[in-house]
Design a protein around this nucleic acid. Sequence first.
DNA 1: CACTCCCGCCAATTA
DNA 2: TAATTGGCGGGAGTG
Length: 881
Amino acid sequence: ENIFDRSRMAPKTPIKNEPVDLSKQRGCTPETNPITPVKIIDRPQPDPWTPTANLKILISAASPDMRDREKKKELFRPIENSEQSDIPDSLQYDIVDDSTVDEFEKQRPSRKQKSLGLLCQKFLARYPNYPLSTEKTTISLDEVASILGVERRRIYDIVNVLESLHLVSRVAKNQYCWHGRHNLSQTLKMLQEAGELQYGELMTFQHKEQDLEYKFGEQKKETIPDSQDRSLLGFSEPDCISASANSRKDKSLRIMSQKFVMLFLVSKTKIVTLDIAAKILIEETQDTVDHSKFKTKVRRLYDIANVLTSLGLIKKVHVTEERGRKPAFKWIGPVEFSEKTDELRGHSPTSDPLPETQKGACAQYQTSTTGKQRFTRHASFNSAQPCEATRRKASSEPNSPRQERQDENCSKMINLAAVCRQKIEEDSGSAKNSNKTLPLSLLPVPGDSDFCVKPLPQAVFPVVQADVPSFSLPLGISSQASHPSTPAAFKTENGKPTLVPNQPFLCFPSSSLFMLCGGLQENNLGEPLPTAGDLGKRSAEAQAAVPLAVCQKRSSHKCSLPSAPVDDEEPAAKKQTLEHSDLPLSLVVPKKPSESPKAEPSQGSGCSAAVHLETNRLDLASPAAPEVANKESTKTLDFQEQEKQSQNKDPDEPPPGNEPISKENSNQPFQPQYLYVQPTAGLSSFNLLFSANQAPGAISLAANQLPSLSVPCVMVPSAALASFPLVCSPPFTSPLSPVPDGSFSAAASTNFNVPSLASTTPVFVSTTAVVTPKVSPVPSVDPQQPAHPALHLSPVLTRSCSAVKLDSPVCMGHPVTLLKLQQPSSAPLTPKSIRPAHHEAFFKTPGSLGDPVAWKKNEGNQIRNASSVQRRLEISSTSPD
DNA sequence: CACTCCCGCCAATTA
DNA sequence: TAATTGGCGGGAGTG
């Protein structure tokens, strides 16, 4: 109700702590009194308990289909809260009002109004997605229950699911601590890892659900038993240890929720049918598949799904199989996690970035509660999960003596190992990834094809913002927001493919910058990358797939690009979604230029966007850069770092491509990709182009390679470059790729003016931008001087590059941004200068980059610092916006 | 009829 | 022992 009123009044602000008693309303609710039509007549206002009510009305008015959509949207919107939500909300509400309909529905409160999903929305509306670290929000179950007018039991359902994702943690009896989505990405990451361990193999086969089912069932039995639940929990959180305990509750909603999420994360298609999930989740019963049990499980899954839907992490879909249509859910949340989220957070309006703080807070809180060492451990461990620890630990501990502990320990160990690994990766990656990836991440974030596309396109600053939010929020909303902005650029929708399907990179107008990447599929260096990769893949797939869509459906993975070692992404998702909505999109693009200052004419779009980004990036970059530089004078750029890190940590990891090696590998002619680097201080007049190319199939590398000089590069006088607006690389050409150059060109042309450049030559360039050469890794041309702007910049570039790599075919505008930052090629910026004032403030934190010295120091702790830095940066970036 | 999933009984846990 | 949590499944609303 509140919401509703407010919406009118001040639609924008999310409902936070409204004292209003829904319960009252409830009493009044239609149920008791079907309400008089009169009210209805007047307006829906009076009645609408929730925003939903309005929606319903609208929906009712609209066609059935519309209804569903509307509903969904609504759900999402509230979630978003912060920034964007405003507009949308208002809009919706307005709409609702207009419709005024309602009568129909109002009459009965209908179950829907009482649905868990709605309830969850209301619940979520009360708390910020990204609460400031400083403020700890405690949730009183009783209070909330009364406010929302529901029985406490229902609140438990919600809280348990939220708890499984670490959005909240139990502090004490009736008390929960609200953490928001700050740690969501990490949690998801962990879950993904865990999921891969447990279900990964299976997922590989995913195409066929049925098969999967069987497989799952079997494996589950096998695999799971051990770590199983524990692992999940535990792994997911350190705290779990204590918490998880074994108690009966293990099968609880919490665990089920985690497992359920894991299935999505592991699934290539990102779609999980209800029955499969139920089967998988029925641990023991596998064989017997008790019908009743199955039913029960399904009921629970619906409960969980409702909450996850409200969170914007999944959406309901239907999968048509041989037998028929089955209910399923599709993951629409972030696909990659890692730091992105963090970054996102930073950007996000509300966010407060600092995990650290949170930790601190959590720690305190935890300690108070529990006062155990574990806690400490945890804290150290994961920045991410702070508070959770507490949960029931205290209680559980006493209860659970050794057994639990042992189990816990085991699971912990495992988990920890995983966690550590992740962390390391993340951290390492974060430095590069975060910065670099950010942009990329944006792309991926969206997850769905729909989303993916959008982000990129956005115009300037929008990009940043949009991106951030998008990341952070899986919600469609963000994407939506972006849309508007994007239109000019390539559009995604159908267009995805259009854009740059195969091409390895994108080019931008000179003014800004460009980047590019080749198709690379896979490598995900870091996590973030994956997203990009995914996108790229998708895009590629899309291209190919589009026509092939059908094929994919059936043979999901096969269809995927042959060349690259694609990972996960698959068409599968697509296949299901044949609908298109999901289409894989791809690309990226420059954004619209609303104003590109310097940029050129049409491109402006790209440029402008770039600019904004730049700023953000700068922030990020600059800090990071310094670190890097310091660390390795030689290496200089992020690349190196990345490489190193990747090597160190990743070696294990799969991404063959990513690795360092490549420098030379990159050489491959196939589709050469280049990175353009403008000369900075060190290199004055030359612009460098590095090839990032990779073999179409293989790929890997990009950024890393670049650093190494060995890679083939081209140096071009800046002047020369100036004339070129951009470049496109030829598509990989997936065999299938239907996309004709023409399409691409067309798209390109629109944005860039470069009509047909063709695909064949991958190149690009820019005049203005000056990039530092990260290039010279070894030489560390510029690197040495930390202060140098170049350094700062370089990191950015690198990152961008790396990101690019990941993304394979797609290119991002992001990188561009970076360049812009540098634009000022003219004068070397000092780090400080680069940073915006705001940023500085943020940076001030001790750990922060603030001074060069600090940076240097950081070397030792690179990882940490980087992460922290990034975070900070993120934050800072946000602030600017 | 199949889906969804609300509702609330009642047992396990806690305090 | 009382209160809190939360598993569970009947059965109602929806399509």
